[in-house]
Design a protein around this nucleic acid. Structure first.
Lengths: 221, 221, 221, 221
DNA sequence: CATGAATGAGGTTTCATTCAT
DNA sequence: GATGAATGAAACCTCATTCAT
């Protein structure tokens, strides 16, 4: 192997396939784990099944994660980073009306979180929060609080401009978020018994009701 | 207590304490199990803990339930009967406006289901539906379908009378239910990390937004 | 209740039905136990089933027997007494030929032991001897030894009279007994898979072969 | 050991000790299980003891057998193959007299089945047939029926040649087999209480009585 | 690095035994 | 005496974790 001057940032293309594989292992494992944790719950998931789904042996898991709990935390953490990134991105100035901003936040959440693999993380956190209080607290502090903050900004802009009638902000945030969370929960829970929800219709109805519900009566005509 | 001549129908107090205990056992056990299943999930709950919480030994559980799974099903079934009863009761003619009916349904659900012990059953079903498809299907068919039917009735009455603007009924139902379910989930999940929700404010906001969101614009002034 | 002069041997007819029932309990219980021990083996038999078959509750068993093992020993002991009695009876002078005596012993064993409820005791002792060495030893010393002694008497009479050719006595005894024991084992083991044996034909053939096998060649014609 | 150029067929010795161990495990386990099942019976044997006797931990058993019952069936199956093989081998033409063939069958059975580890399988099947009807049926159909068939052949050859007097074939078979089965049962049951049988004397006596019992009277002198 | 056989603590389940009624 | 609810030790079985290869 030739020594390079700048070995510090080896290009992806330069690595051997095997090396690339090795680097990818942890996320392949967390991906497999996420699927199964979401489907069966943490306690009911066997590491054997996680390993099999990731196409490795059970022992290999322990090369990357110290314990089942460590794997769980890694699964969540891997879902937190992009969630935060998505939030940051939404924050980046949006100059439209409050309603437009609200719509952008809801649609953005669905497109970048809810409908993706990360929707599973949301469901998982909700399901297991009692068994992993520290993880839940961390998620709460870094993701939930930030998400609520975004919604608060949008609502308060609407209040300030007179676009929305004044209401209790925190309750509004909860009521706005609930259908979003419920959507991912439904998708991962009751999906099988003929209760399947069409996300687009559902979100449109949610937004439709919400905007009209928020809007000042006198502004309409 | 008044002594009666006809002892043919032995009062509860007349039975031996032993007997009285035996009759009460199943529900004592399902109550303990419900608490723990809701708190930790089915798989993470040890029968030993269920027994201890109910104040009996591990073996006693098996006098009343054939297996852990049978206990789970009993917990759910015990929650289904009152849920259906509550629904039936709501059905009993309500002659007010659609908005009033809707409010009655939401408040009634909260008072009779959501805020009671049975809220735990709701959370449990949602969490474990994938691991107990048959139980989930049964719950869906007997409880969810019926509950949705009640809401559908209310909405359609509003549409027919012109009180509500016409919207996609099924989506509306989902969007109306979601915050209710989310409320019980929150109460049993994230209750600890400073995220506690005030149910009354929350439900008022939900109803407030909802009614205004549903109402015909021209009917206001 | 009237005091009687000779209360020492109260007539059966004098006892109340209830009293008779009480006295009969132990043997009803051992009878039920024998059936199940023979059918399933000692370890695989639940006392609950024994009690149910005897028509009493589980607790009642413990009024009469200290433990499951005590019940087992009682079952065996109850089978030993009549077995010994039967043997004694056979011993009572039989003046015919050695062959006739032998036939009487074999037929007698079958009629009084093998074909009766006590055949089960024989099978049980054989099956469980390793788990109850003391019981087996007792049975060996009091029943087997005595039974072999009877056969030895018959054989030696035949040797002495020249009716039988001289052979190794102990081996002969074993070979004579084996088909008898095997008959009860078959009846309680493989009875179900089309392998049912006709006891009469079987015993006749055994005796026929045996007598001709024992008899002096020159005595025939 | 000679090094070969073609390593394509790795010799057993070349495999890792780990692998060699794994291949041997199932039969080590069934051997341990057979010993204990025969000694104590199926229900009274603890898997922990089986594992300990095989020098492994309890969990290891479950790498190779799904359940205690599966272990039992494996024990029997492992005993069936060589039993059938032994039978087939006996079948291979034997040209002597019927008496010689009969002797070969009895001695062969003792040498290849009765006196070996497989004698335990015979005892086990007899003891547990009621608790495992399907296993017993399988054994009956594949081993017992075939063994009886061999004896039937020998007997009928003797009848045809006039060497044996005509008798009821099936009864004869039963009576011939019984002392053989009883021999293994004795060896595994009453072996301890001074009742030990000398197999050679026993078998000689059985054969001696049997042949003389079967033979035509007029052929003797 | 990767494997998968092996482990054993801990869970579910059974059942002989006890005891208040 | 009779009952059967209750017990808890001990069995079967699972699976997170380790480690020799």
């Amino acid at each position: 192997m030739v020594a390079t001057l700048s070995a510090s940032e080896p290009d992806v293309a330069e690595r051997s396939p095997r090396r690339r594989r090795k680097d990818a292992r942890p996320s392949e494992l967390t991906a497999a784990a996420l699927d199964l944790f979401v489907e069966r719950g943490f306690a009911a998931t066997r590491l054997d099944d996680v390993a099999t789904r990731a196409g490795v042996s059970k022992g290999t898991l322990y090369l990357y994660f110290d314990s089942k709990e460590a794997l769980f935390k890694a699964v969540i953490e891997e879902g937190i980073v992009p969630a935060i990134a998505a939030a940051e991105q939404q924050l980046a100035g949006h100059e439209g009306s409050a309603a437009e901003l609200l719509r952008a936040l809801l649609i953005g959440w669905w497109q970048q979180i809810g409908s993706t693999r990360m929707g599973g993380v949301v469901k998982l956190i909700i399901s297991e929060s009692r068994n992993f209080p520290d993880v839940a607290q961390y998620y709460h502090d870094h993701v939930i609080v930030r998400g609520r903050s975004l919604l608060r900004t949008a609502l308060q802009r609407g209040f300030a401009s007179g676009e929305f009638r004044r209401m209790d902000v925190e309750s509004c945030i909860d009521v706005i978020i609930a259908p979003l969370l419920m959507l991912v929960i439904w998708r991962y829970s009751f999906c099988f018994c003929g209760n399947d929800i069409a996300p687009d219709d559902y979100l449109n109805t949610h937004f439709d009701l919400l905007i009209r519900g928020l809007t000042q009566a006198e502004t309409r005509q």
